[in-house]
Simulated scan of single mutants.
Amino acid sequence: MDYVKPAEVLETMIETGTSKANLNAFQLLIRAILGGAILAFATTLAFTAVTQTSIGLTGAIIFPVGFVIIVLLGLELVTGSFALIPLSVLERKTSLGRMLANYGWVIIGHLIGCALYAILYDLTVTKMGTDMQNPLAKMLIQVSEAKTLGYKKLGFDGMVLVFIKAILCNWMVTLGVVMAMTSKSTSGKILAMWLPVLTFFAQGFEHAVVNMFVIPAGMLLGAIVTMSDWWLWNQIPVLVGNLVGGALFTGILFYFSQKTFKRSAAAHVHTGAKDVLTPVPAERRGL
């Protein structure tokens, strides 16, 4: 059958996390550069749909196309790995150091890929810098400022708000990664992962990799945002929030919901009349 049961999905999550942790730096960089650029493509596609229809939900319906491409091609998305590699660490199939190294290299790759696309896209929508009236250019500036200065104006409350929105975002994004594992067919994987990604984008939650494109792209177009505004009021808290949302609410909680732990030396036997505890013979316990 096409459907994969949750217990099998958990095993796939652990295996995938281990495989990602074992990739070398060069592979991680290339896959992350491509992953960041493709997600940036999907972001501008979503923005195009919104400007053309004036309906925000159209962008959310279209945006998952980038996520689908990344997952099906086995590219890197650090927000997805936030839910997978910690499980490999829990199972002692990789180390904390390898996990952190993976995250570091992938984040660097995302920044490169997103910056490359931001430069090329900005040149495109402004006709090589000669026309700043394009609605998409204005939208990028507005979004860039809203994602940084909007939180800055709220002070401490803004920092808490962006952190919460990042948690909620990656709870859904990592569910998209996991849902793709519930099917063996390409069409099933696409449909399964589309739903949670649409859910996060439609509600305006904060995704670290999307922001690695949107905020610099807006800055290049003239948004009044500094590097400290970008990193302090968005990128750092969003990365941390995405980590919490993915690792805790998807990875760890799903792990404990499905993991079968070994019982103690006493085996539970059902007699029909009542339950009794029967000691396991020494030879079966390896004694």
Results as ranks from 00 to 15, higher is better:
Asp2Gly: 01
Tyr3Asp: 09
Val4Asn: 02
Lys5Asn: 13
Leu10Pro: 09
Ser19Cys: 08
Leu29Ala: 06
Leu39Ile: 15
Ala42Trp: 06
Thr48Asp: 10
Ala49Arg: 05
Ser54Gly: 09
Leu57Met: 15
Ala60Cys: 10
Val65His: 06
Phe67Leu: 12
Leu72Tyr: 00
Leu73Pro: 02
Leu73Phe: 07
Leu75Thr: 03
Leu77Gly: 02
Pro86Gln: 09
Ser88Gly: 15
Val89Ala: 12
Val89Trp: 12
Arg92Ile: 11
Lys93Ala: 06
Val106His: 05
Cys114His: 01
Ala115Val: 13
Leu116Asp: 08
Ala118Met: 10
Ile119Tyr: 14
Thr124Leu: 14
Met132Pro: 07
Asn134Gln: 04
Lys152Asp: 10
Leu161His: 10
Ile164Ala: 11
Ala166Trp: 06
Cys169Lys: 04
Trp171Phe: 15
Val173Phe: 04
Thr174Val: 00
Val177Thr: 14
Val177Tyr: 10
Met181Asn: 11
Ser183Val: 05
Lys184His: 09
Thr186Pro: 05
Lys189Cys: 12
Leu191Ser: 07
Ala192Tyr: 02
Val197Ile: 15
Leu198Arg: 00
Val210Met: 11
Met219Pro: 01
Leu221Val: 07
Val225Ile: 01
Leu232Trp: 08
Ile236Glu: 05
Asn242His: 02
Val244Lys: 01
Gly245Cys: 03
Gly245Ala: 07
Ala247Trp: 02
Leu248Tyr: 11
Leu248Thr: 12
Leu253Gly: 02
Val269Tyr: 09
Ala273Asn: 11
Asp275Thr: 09
Glu283Arg: 02
Glu283Asp: 09
Arg284Gly: 00
